[in-house]
């Protein structure tokens, strides 16, 4: 295809139609307004639907640990705890591995493995979450139950996090799956950030006799600090909102436990599990209330990430890997 698209009506282009232009512009304005309206609408709808729960429980909803649909007593603390812990453990696992891979790709890897690995990482990002969940249930959880958790229990069992029976299904397995799911984000964002570090700074470090590793630690990581942090926060946002894979692996148990081996519950997975079956109005409103919490948390997290990333984003091509 040539660079210039041909139009059959070239000769009709003569007169300017200002009126049509204005109408066209006004019509097009509808679409961005719709985008704003949808996000606003989501907030309003969530607020309205959870109103009875907000009125009934108030802010104590967030710090109450009872979740009893029969007695109609609802509190979101176990889910908030589960979400925070699973996301944090996932980040603890994913950040070093993701960042390491990104540094390897940007600084060490020769051209051909770099391209292949990058596209494979994109592949990892494209796998739907329900498939991660399936893999988690049938591949990861058995390995966790029979090998990893007994091993951790044996050597790190003195810590409260690694005590108790190895069910396989539970917080730890869910966090591992989450980690695998967010690694592609961390890799693609930190790789872009690292590649955006100006060569002159790196060369200055080399010129002073720094080794490659020292140049990475001293120059690249601290220059790209904000961007990498933004990527990590974005990944955390994903981990917080991730539903299916976590629901399938975390065990869905309303209990706050220090042990990572015990089954737990997250904000997203309680909605996924109980929403379609919720019977009473207050029950539904409480679940929507959890949805509202999730919505607000994700907005805050994304605003943070956006503030850290937008400068880098603006200068970059449109695809930041998902």
């Amino acid at each position: 295809m040539g660079p210039f698209p041909r139009s059959k009506n070239m000769e009709k282009f003569g007169q300017r139609k200002d009126a049509v232009d204005i109408v066209f512009q006004r019509t097009m304005l509808v679409f961005p307004l719709l985008v704003l309206l949808i996000v606003g609408g989501i907030f309003v709808q969530l607020l309205l639907s959870s109103w009875i729960s907000i009125k009934e429980f108030g802010p104590a909803f967030l710090v109450t640990s009872t979740w009893d649909p029969v007695a109609e007593k609802f509190g979101a603390l176990p889910f908030i705890f589960g979400t925070i812990v699973s996301s944090l453990v996932a980040l603890l696992l994913a950040v070093p591995i993701g960042l390491g891979t990104a540094i390897y790709l940007a600084e060490y890897a020769p051209q051909w493995p770099r391209r292949i690995i990058s596209s494979l990482v994109d592949l990892l990002a494209a796998i739907p979450s329900v498939i991660y969940g399936l893999w988690g249930i049938f591949v990861l959880v058995p390995v966790m139950r029979s090998h990893v958790q007994p091993f951790l229990g044996k050597y790190l069992g003195f810590l409260p996090f690694f005590q108790g029976p190895a069910y396989g299904i539970g917080m730890f397995s869910a966090s591992v799956i989450l980690a695998i799911m967010i690694i592609p984000f961390i890799i693609s964002i930190s790789r872009e950030v690292i590649l955006a570090v100006p060569h002159v700074y790196k060369e200055a470090a080399y010129a002073m006799g720094a080794t490659r590793w020292e140049a990475i630690c001293t120059i690249i990581l601290s220059y790209g600090k904000a961007g990498i942090l933004g990527g990590i926060i974005l990944a955390m946002g994903r981990a917080i909102g991730e539903t299916m894979a976590v629901t399938m692996a975390i065990g869905n148990n309303v209990k706050i436990s220090a042990s990572l081996f015990s089954p737990a519950y997250t904000l997203a997975s309680v909605i996924a599990n109980e929403f379609a079956e919720a019977t009473s109005k207050l029950y539904l409103a409480s679940l929507t209330h959890i949805g509202l919490v999730l919505f607000l948390v994700s907005i805050v997290v994304n605003i943070l990430a956006w503030l850290l990333l937008w400068r880098i984003n603006e200068r970059q091509k449109i695809f930041q890997g998902r």
């Binding site: 704003l36 609408g41 946002g237 994903r238 539903t243 949805g291 999730l294 994700s298 994304n302 605003i303």
Partner: peptide
């Protein structure tokens, strides 16, 4: 707004569609 929307958990969109 679109960037923030991109980060909203997918299940929230489900609740939204359910309410409307």
């Amino acid at each position: 707004t679109t960037d923030v929307m991109n980060g909203i958990p997918s299940i929230v969109f489900g609740i939204f569609a359910w309410t409307i």
